Amino acid sequence: MSRMEKKLYLSDTNKIIGGVCGGIGEYLGIDPTVIRLIWAALSVGTAFVGGVVLYIIAMFIIPRRS
């Protein structure tokens, strides 16, 4: 029995801005809306700096599917 390797990618189908939350949701098997709500709470809790900066960094670090 072979193990399928699970990889994190930006979502092409579940994206609003860059596909970060959609990709994380697909990777974890969670509805991307839940990830977006958590990300929004993080952003509000850090006066938008932490959430926005992390999102931009994630857009550049997480690869697109080829």
Rank of each mutant, 00 (worst) to 15 (best):
M1L: 11
S2E: 13
R3P: 09
R3V: 14
R3K: 14
R3D: 13
M4E: 12
E5L: 10
E5K: 11
E5Y: 08
E5I: 10
E5M: 09
K6T: 10
K6V: 11
K6L: 11
K6H: 10
K7N: 07
K7T: 15
K7I: 13
K7S: 13
L8I: 14
L8C: 13
L8N: 07
Y9P: 03
Y9S: 03
L10A: 03
L10F: 02
L10R: 00
L10I: 01
L10E: 01
S11G: 04
S11A: 07
S11H: 02
S11I: 07
D12A: 10
T13Q: 15
T13S: 13
N14M: 14
K15P: 10
K15S: 13
K15G: 08
I16D: 05
I17G: 04
I17D: 05
G18P: 09
G18F: 15
G18V: 10
G19H: 04
G19V: 08
V20R: 01
C21G: 08
G22V: 05
G22C: 06
G22F: 05
I24Q: 01
I24T: 02
I24S: 02
I24F: 00
G25I: 06
E26V: 07
E26W: 03
Y27V: 12
Y27A: 07
L28M: 09
G29V: 05
I30V: 15
D31F: 08
D31N: 13
P32N: 10
P32E: 06
T33P: 09
T33Q: 12
V34L: 11
V34R: 00
V34T: 10
I35W: 09
I35L: 05
R36H: 14
I38A: 10
I38M: 13
I38R: 06
W39R: 01
W39P: 01
A40V: 10
A40E: 02
A40I: 11
A41S: 12
L42E: 08
L42M: 12
V44L: 15
V44F: 14
V44G: 03
G45Q: 05
G45W: 15
T46V: 01
T46R: 00
T46A: 00
A47E: 10
A47L: 15
F48S: 02
F48Y: 11
V49E: 00
V49F: 09
V49R: 03
G50N: 03
G51R: 04
G51V: 08
G51N: 02
G51Y: 09
G51C: 05
V52L: 14
V53P: 01
L54C: 03
L54I: 05
L54T: 05
Y55T: 00
Y55C: 00
Y55F: 08
Y55G: 00
Y55S: 01
Y55P: 01
I56D: 03
I57S: 04
A58I: 11
A58L: 14
M59R: 05
M59L: 13
M59T: 09
F60C: 07
F60L: 09
I61D: 10
I61N: 06
I62P: 01
I62D: 02
P63H: 06
R64A: 12
R64F: 08
R64V: 11
R65T: 13
S66C: 05
S66A: 11
